[in-house]
Nucleic acid binder design. Structure first.
Lengths: 247, 247
DNA sequence: TAAGCGGGTTGACGTGGATCAAACGCCGGG
DNA sequence: CCCGGCGTTTGATCCACGTCAACCCGCTTA
């Protein structure tokens, strides 16, 4: 997938959008807003963008002017260092926000890439700031979203800093499961949108280690795994595994 | 140091404070505010608190109502899991903010502990939201601070996910160095406020590994180390070490 | 139908850092 | 001045995960 293709397509795939009749409004920024406030938000969320699998929503170094709400699909964000190493910093699904990293320096500091065909709402940031000066609820909710991102990052730091391979994978799967559940999908059966390599990058492991951990989970009857199709058979077992004292 | 001692002392050590004549105002929340705006901020920043080494500024589970700006001293924040493992999520120095994690759930999700005698300004969060609805500059600056925290966390994730022990320690020291420099202290010579164990926890390493890495750096002439006293002798060498391709 | 390819699995082996253990230096108290 | 305690250093050993390599599976293309 060439960059030019992606950029060209993006330029045209914009659609007028409206929060007030979006079925994600309980999951996304509009939480708790009154009808008239929701109308104001509609004006704010100016455009929708469609992306194909592999397209970049934004790249490191690109000017920041909007944050994005995932309307459908699945994303990853990653950061790079010169020598080629990279780290997946998160996976984002419907109702989650992308681009908060760009606020600090007016420039995006990570890449956001669609892992399947996706759709996002672009929210021009200066407008969001303007509106959140008027709507207290929106302001507070936005602050909570940013704070939640910080808390999530602390969880990942804990995972990377103290957990062993199987614990990391268990934590990862339980987190995904719970997020699918919150969106009305089965918490027990889902398919992964990311490769073993991407999971490994997120968890600070090599893809072989991820693959082996999957196999061991399957052997122990905790899951069934077929390629990217996951069925969780023993949630309690996975949870127990996570809190196993390090020997 | 017992908890009760700390809590009792904290209750009394409150002092009226003012941003407008604080010599940190170029480093802290007031950046870029006009004189009259600064006066409003003064009313906001209600109290100052002194802490002794080892005191908790706040604890996991405690109700969130203020964020804190470090006026002097040095802090660490950490998170725990049931089985006793813990992860230091950050070290905070003068001008940096503490407590952003609490916004999302109205409850603190990490502990903040003074690593030396310290002083903080308490900023009641609801007041901050109120004022930032009036002062655009303040609002934007606050968003930048939160975003910067997210970017910093991504850096730590990169460190924990992809770097080896010596690279982590080099990155850590260079970061400290640069932060001391920004505060007008020597970037080359400083003393660490935290133990090897705390460094290890932050970097996802055991204290022995940290100690060995220090020794090796010293052998290679990159630093001189005497207990917690650090002198950086070869910044370029440390930087090069950081970007060494993994074999 | 074959051939190519990208992603996933599995095995054999190497190694960086954890673990265990001992000793050292610094510091405060008797 | 000695003593005990804590943080740190250093050495010896171990093991979880990385590395390297072969192979497999499902999909696409010729």
């Amino acid at each position: 997938m060439s960059t030019k293709d992606a950029t060209a397509r993006l330029a045209f795939e914009v659609v007028k959008t409206a929060c007030s009749n979006c079925n994600l409004r309980e999951l996304c920024l509009p939480i708790g807003l009154e009808a008239d406030e929701l109308r104001k938000l509609d004006e704010l969320v100016s455009t929708r963008r469609r992306l194909k699998r592999g397209d970049y929503l934004y790249r490191v170094g690109q000017d920041f002017e909007s944050i994005y709400a995932v309307r459908s699909g699945f994303f990853k964000t990653d950061v790079l260092i010169e020598d080629g190493r990279d780290q997946v910093t998160g996976f984002q699904m419907t109702g989650e926000l992308l681009g908060l990293d760009g606020i600090s320096s007016e420039v995006h500091t990570c890449n956001a890439i669609a892992l399947e065909d996706s759709e996002v709402c672009a929210i021009p940031f200066s407008h969001l700031e303007g509106l959140s000066r008027q709507i207290h609820t929106l302001q507070h909710h936005f602050h909570q979203v940013m704070s939640r991102e910080i808390v999530r990052d602390h969880g990942v730091m804990m995972l990377l800093g103290t957990m062993r391979a199987e614990e990391r994978l268990a934590a990862f799967l339980l987190n995904l499961s719970q997020r699918f559940k919150a969106r009305g999908y089965s918490p027990a059966e889902f398919n992964l949108r990311m490769s073993r390599d991407e999971i490994g990058s997120y968890l600070g492991l090599k893809l072989e280690t991820v693959s082996r951990a999957f196999s061991r989970f399957q052997d122990e009857g905790l899951l069934s795994v077929h390629q990217r199709r996951i069925r969780i058979l023993n949630t309690a077992g996975l949870k127990k595994l996570m809190s196993h004292q390090r020997l």
